[in-house]
Nucleic acid binder design. Structure first.
Lengths: 196, 196
DNA sequence: CCTACCGATCGGTAGG
DNA sequence: CCTACCGATCGGTAGG
C-alpha cells in the first residue's frame, strides 16, 4: 500500500513539473502563479507544496534536467573520437532531436533561465557556456583542417545555436514534422548555405 | 515657457520608455514593476502616470515602434525593384543594423510581445507574419530562378530569422562589434554555409 | 510631482 | 489533500 502511494506521488510530481513547463512557456515564469499550476492538476495551490518545495525549485528542476541532458551527450560524443565535422554534425542532430522531443522544457530552459535564483544561476550559465565552447572548438578545428571556411568561429557558433532555436517556431506551426527531413534540411542549410 | 515644458515632458517620456525597455529585457515584462521603472528615472511610481497611461501601453509602444520600422523598410524595399537575392540581402542587412543599433527594443519586441494585451496581440502578430511571408516569398523566387538551392523555403526563412537573433548573444558579449565585419560574416554564412 | 491609499493577487505557512 | 490566513507587493487612483 505504501508502495502504491509512492508511485502515485511520483507521477503527480511529474505531472506538476510538466504542467509548470507548459505554463512557464505559455505565460512566462513570472506571470505564472502557483494557482495556475494547481488548477491544471486539479488541486488547490497550497497542496502543491506536498510535492515541491517552491516555485523557484520547479524552475531549477526544469532548467537543469535540460542542461544535464546536453552535458551527458557531450561526454558520450567525446568518446566516439570522430572528426570535428562529424562530431559537430552529431551534436547538431542530437540538439535537433531534443528540440523536437522535449521542446516545451527546452523552451523554458532557453528563455526563462534568467529567473533562476542567484545560487543556481551561475552554475547554469557555466553549463551552457561549456556546451557553446565545445561547439566553437569543433568549428575551430574544422577551420584549421580546412574543412570549414575561414569564418569567425564564435559567430558561427552563435548563428548555429540561434538557427537551432528556429525549431521553436517550427513546432509552433504544428507541421507534422518529419524528423529526418527536418534534420537533414537544417544540417544542409547550415553546412552548405542558401545558394547552389 | 510652455514650449520648454513640452520639450521636457517629451524627453522624460522618452527616458521612461528607454528605461522600461532596459528593464523589460533584463527582468522580463511581468517581473518588472512600475516602481522599478520609476526608480531608474528618479521619481515615485505614481508619478509615471503623468507621462504614460499604463504598463501595458508602455509595452505596446515599444513593440509597435519596432514592428513599424520593419514595415516601413519593407515598403521602401519593394520600391527598389531589385532581384530576389539582392532584396533578401538588403533586408538582412537592414535587420542586422536594427539589431545592432536598437537591440534592447528589438529584444523586448522579440521576447515580450506575448504579454501584449488582447487588443494589440493579433495586430502585432499579423505585422510579424507579413515580414516573415515577404522573406519566404523572396526565397521562393530565388529557388524558382535557380539562384538558391531547392530548400524548404519556410524552414529557410525560420533559420534565417533565428540566426539573426544570434546577434542578441553577440551584443551580450560586448565585443566592440565592427558592424561591417559582422554583417558580411552573417550574410556569407547564411548564403554560403559553413563548408568551403 | 508627491503622499496616502485602494482592491487584487502573489508565494508560502499553519494546522488539521 | 483542504481551509484559513500571513505579510509583501502589484498596478493604478484620488486629491492636492
Amino acid at each position: 500500500m505504501s508502495k502504491i502511494k509512492v508511485i502515485r506521488n511520483e507521477t503527480k510530481l511529474a505531472a506538476i513539473e510538466q504542467q509548470a513547463s507548459i505554463l512557464f512557456k505559455q505565460k512566462g515564469y513570472s506571470a505564472t502563479s502557483m494557482k495556475d499550476i494547481a488548477e491544471q492538476i486539479g488541486i488547490e495551490a497550497p497542496s502543491l507544496y506536498n510535492h515541491i518545495s517552491s516555485k523557484a525549485d520547479l524552475l531549477k528542476t526544469i532548467c537543469f534536467s535540460v542542461a544535464d541532458s546536453f552535458e551527458e551527450e557531450m561526454k558520450r560524443s567525446e568518446q566516439r573520437n570522430a572528426t570535428p565535422e562529424v562530431e559537430l554534425e552529431q551534436m547538431l542532430r542530437f540538439h535537433i532531436q531534443m528540440m523536437l522531443n522535449n521542446f516545451t522544457t527546452l523552451w523554458v530552459a532557453n528563455h526563462e533561465w534568467k529567473h533562476l535564483s542567484q545560487i543556481y544561476l551561475k552554475k547554469y550559465i557555466d553549463k551552457r557556456k561549456a556546451y557553446e565552447n565545445k561547439m566553437r572548438w569543433l568549428i575551430e578545428q574544422g577551420i584549421t583542417k580546412g574543412t570549414f571556411a575561414a569564418l569567425d568561429a564564435k559567430m558561427a557558433t552563435l548563428i548555429i545555436l540561434a538557427a537551432l532555436r528556429g525549431l521553436e517556431f517550427w513546432q509552433k506551426e504544428k507541421q507534422p514534422a518529419n524528423a529526418d527531413v527536418l534534420e537533414n534540411n537544417i544540417i544542409q542549410q547550415l553546412f552548405n548555405g542558401l545558394t547552389q
